[in-house]
Nucleic acid binder design. Sequence first.
DNA 1: TATAATTTTGTAATCATTTCAATTTTGAAA
DNA 2: TTTCAAAATTGAAATGATTACAAAATTATA
Lengths: 135, 135
Amino acid sequence: MNIQEVHQHLMNHDIKPSVQRVAIMQYLLEHLTHPTIDQIYTDLVPVMPTLSKTTVYNTLKLFYDKKAVIALFIDEKNVRYDGDTSNHAHFRCKKCGIVRDIPIEKTGIPSFKDNPDLHLEETQIYFLGTCKQCM
Amino acid sequence: MNIQEVHQHLMNHDIKPSVQRVAIMQYLLEHLTHPTIDQIYTDLVPVMPTLSKTTVYNTLKLFYDKKAVIALFIDEKNVRYDGDTSNHAHFRCKKCGIVRDIPIEKTGIPSFKDNPDLHLEETQIYFLGTCKQCM
DNA sequence: TATAATTTTGTAATCATTTCAATTTTGAAA
DNA sequence: TTTCAAAATTGAAATGATTACAAAATTATA
């Protein structure tokens, strides 16, 4: 996705684009590997040397609040982010830590109809176990 | 649940009982409020003054590894624990932070049949949103 | 009882995240 | 273009959860 498209993508989510925001969103859209803040920062600093880690934190909080990214709490160590906001689940291998996407059939998603006293904003489905390589 | 029953409960999970382990498990079984390590420690120290927070960490890691408790990563701040290991989901209010149990109809649980290259150990379903009080 | 293994404890270290004030950038108005 | 205010970025310091580790205490075993 080129810069203009990322720019527009941010605008669509009511986020004022800046050089840093575009770079971070572009990174997320091109790296669907559920990176942590540190991974994003470490990968972007070489091409954007003035980038501050605080900016990465600020920016991802903003993206999350605007629902432009998914925040994954699947890992107790650090939060991971996913630029793919479509409906899907995640699997984490307890041994090597890798996080994989798991497609969810629409019928497989737990419903929330019977809780009128709770306003649902997001549903997170995590599978934990062992991947083939670690078995 | 009395001490003998908690003792047996630990044995059933292949956990060697100790005074601390029994106290912590009893606390978890009697407080299904998804407490954090700090909450458990703070509540138990008055009745067990020599208790160390490290012991609470060690013990809950052990319980989790033995699948005697559920660990909730629903909160990016800290891990929460649930002595109820039966199949259920959780809701967290983004405003006040309260974590509630959500019963899940068996049919509502996403299946994992189509992933023979992944060994599934646990499924976590989190709903995030706003509770009635905060609306 | 003596000894070994396990568990508990407290301190110090680690590391992700937040706070905060200063600096820089942006955008609008003159 | 210049000026000014608001917004965004930055870096350093603080916070707070968790882990590492070694000593002390407890428990199990010979």
